[in-house]
Amino acid sequence: MSQMYLRRFGEHTGPRQYKLTARRIDNVDQPFTAAPNKVLAERGYYWGTTFDGIPHHGVEDLFTELEGATASVLRTVLDAPEGALPARWPLSGSERLMLSWWLAAQILRTTRQRKRLAFAAQAAERLDAPAEIAAIAANNPHLSFIIERLAALAFTLYARPWGLGFSDMCLLTSDVPVALFNHHDAEDQLTAAALCDILVPLDPHRLLFMPSPRMQADDPYKRADHRMKIPGAVGMALVQVAYDVADALVIHHPRHDPWVHWAPSGPRQPAPWNGKNHDAPKYVLEYGTLAPHLTVERHWLTEHPPASAKEAEEAPGIGGDATG
């Protein structure tokens, strides 16, 4: 899991030191403290074979390079001094391209994908790959899956309209940081990524959202890059979606705890590899776009007004309207 990304959900406690709050899906009422470089870290996750007795880790190096380049893009988006939402949006083409590659990697590299592929046990057509990588892929279906789809998925994400949002509700992330609404575990991940609403929590109060073609048909403002302000009740729905797709762990900032105003409800996304074959939850989300001249003051990234009675009443539901 990307340490660069996880640090955005961590409390800075010292030079290069951060702490997170993590919760195991099978025991969410017992949070524990973890460091970004200790949680969701598995050495050799993509190693499928050895060369001359030495494990090959070139793909992990590729992801590390992607994360390093993406860090500067996230700083542009999340550290803008003029507000919690930057005045410069959309991103430049090069910034958008880099973030697209990183997002594609986050969709493909998760433990949930690995378990889904192992359960399905389907043979996939392979694109040509360097001999050294292809040798690993032959022993590692998940790695083969990543190699075949990474570039095409990055292009698919690059071509979609992007919404950058601020949520009044504190957000969480997980070992599955990108959620594809309603078809998260589709066998054809490229088609799902082209047609589904996509949610990416970026930090405790910012998120990236890619509206589906249905949303775009209903609202012309969502056919291009846009910004939005998400009220608390809709933010709770987004927390539920992010929670539903997690595999083993959810993570949030120690001082931005979604459980203060929210609790899990209903069945999560099914996990047939664990014997959980129930129907998947369905999500419908509506929000309004923010006028280009408006933003959110940065102090709301750390200040938390109390939830209104209306928000408390609507908390379990999915839906509602977000307006700027």
Rank of each mutant, 00 (worst) to 15 (best):
residue 264 P to R: 02
residue 257 D to W: 04
residue 297 E to P: 10
residue 214 R to I: 10
residue 226 H to Y: 04
residue 214 R to Y: 12
residue 267 P to I: 10
residue 276 K to C: 05
residue 306 P to K: 02
residue 199 L to T: 05
residue 271 A to K: 12
residue 222 K to R: 12
residue 258 P to G: 01
residue 295 T to N: 09
residue 248 A to E: 13
residue 224 A to W: 11
residue 270 P to E: 09
residue 288 G to F: 03
residue 264 P to Q: 07
residue 196 C to A: 14
residue 236 M to Y: 11
residue 289 T to V: 06
residue 235 G to V: 08
residue 250 V to T: 09
residue 249 L to G: 01
residue 280 A to W: 00
residue 217 A to R: 07
residue 276 K to A: 07
residue 205 H to G: 04
residue 220 P to V: 12
residue 249 L to S: 00
residue 303 E to K: 15
residue 302 T to P: 01
residue 271 A to S: 12
residue 229 K to P: 00
residue 224 A to H: 14
residue 284 V to M: 10
residue 264 P to A: 15
residue 262 W to P: 07
residue 269 Q to V: 15
residue 299 H to E: 11
residue 251 I to S: 02
residue 236 M to R: 11
residue 258 P to Q: 02
residue 291 A to L: 04
residue 209 F to Y: 14
residue 258 P to V: 04
residue 241 V to A: 13
residue 200 V to M: 06
residue 299 H to S: 10
residue 260 V to Y: 08
residue 225 D to P: 02
residue 272 P to H: 08
residue 230 I to M: 09
residue 256 H to F: 02
residue 255 R to N: 15
residue 288 G to Q: 03
residue 221 Y to Q: 10
residue 294 L to R: 02
residue 230 I to S: 00
residue 231 P to M: 01
residue 296 V to L: 12
residue 259 W to P: 03
residue 271 A to E: 15
residue 225 D to Q: 00
residue 285 L to Y: 14
residue 267 P to M: 11
residue 293 H to Y: 08
residue 299 H to Q: 08
residue 208 L to R: 11
residue 278 H to T: 10
residue 255 R to A: 13
residue 256 H to N: 04
residue 206 R to Y: 11
residue 198 I to W: 10
residue 256 H to M: 12
residue 264 P to T: 14
residue 273 W to V: 04
residue 269 Q to C: 14
residue 268 R to I: 14
residue 227 R to F: 00
residue 241 V to W: 08
residue 211 P to W: 10
residue 245 V to N: 04
residue 237 A to Y: 11
residue 208 L to T: 03
residue 243 Y to V: 01
residue 304 H to R: 13
residue 289 T to P: 01
residue 203 D to C: 05
residue 208 L to V: 10
residue 265 S to N: 12
